[in-house]
Write a protein that binds this DNA or RNA. Sequence first.
DNA 1: CGATTTGGTTTCATAATGCAACCAAAATCT
DNA 2: AGATTTTGGTTGCATTATGAAACCAAATCG
Lengths: 149, 149
Amino acid sequence: MVARRSLKGDYCPSARSLDAIGDWWSLLIVRDAFDGLRRFSDFQKSLGIAKNILTERLRTLVDRGILETVPVGEAKARVEYQLTAMGRDLFPVMVALRQFGERHLFQPGEEHSLLVEKETGLPVKLDIRTQDGRPIEADETVLIKVPED
Amino acid sequence: MVARRSLKGDYCPSARSLDAIGDWWSLLIVRDAFDGLRRFSDFQKSLGIAKNILTERLRTLVDRGILETVPVGEAKARVEYQLTAMGRDLFPVMVALRQFGERHLFQPGEEHSLLVEKETGLPVKLDIRTQDGRPIEADETVLIKVPED
DNA sequence: CGATTTGGTTTCATAATGCAACCAAAATCT
DNA sequence: AGATTTTGGTTGCATTATGAAACCAAATCG
């Protein structure tokens, strides 16, 4: 394949994000981490991912600061994986993907999962707003370039 | 590689979304489409993607209803690609990815692009709220299962 | 009308991924 | 304690996905 190009140096923040978590499995691992999974075997069972690939993905997610290992029990040999603060900041990405899926990728009445507020049980909303709080659409926005200092 | 598993049947909306747009190039193509790119050669120049892969990705994005082709000029042979209504609904995903990147993947003072409101030039915000408008964090939410009717 | 650009397709080499077998350390059972 | 099972991987091999480059027909340009 000649090694796919890294986007780490791209000036577009979306591109860099995809570089960090945009491969096939990484976001699914992060989703499971948000669901509370912590052990190698948990991820493996949940995703049906090959073990060598899971090993590699967990390693790079740790390298990139999205997951961290915590020793389990007395021994330092066995670890669990949990989201870092940076990893938890992927929450809006997960919610955005979820809402797109809910809206467009399910038949009406089809069984699916739903993200709700713990306290009230009501579905959460995600929206894009201006600084003064007015909801805004894509065509009312534009991309500008912020030069280096 | 033995053909990676499709998530089209997964009950998790995030998983289905990733199935639709979660490969290496698709979201970058969608990002460029939001930036106004429409021609094969535009995407090719912007992304540096191999032409055969671009062909395949454009085709599946059209198949999945995220892009649509519009004939250009008189001839039906030449087409441009534009986002469908469904495709435009990926806007929050793009913004969420962008904001994560801005926050975590750039050095302070490093050059980057920024999404702003056309009218005011002010950066847009994205946040997750309860039904009554209170901003909410991941740990105040929980996933429930919505059974089929 | 001839040359160039656009929008691909085909071929080939290589990297990424999956599967299955294997293994050491930890945990559990007797 | 010793035997057995589970956990958390690693290794080797087969296959798929991807990229690069060559090629090509139709549209466009001069």
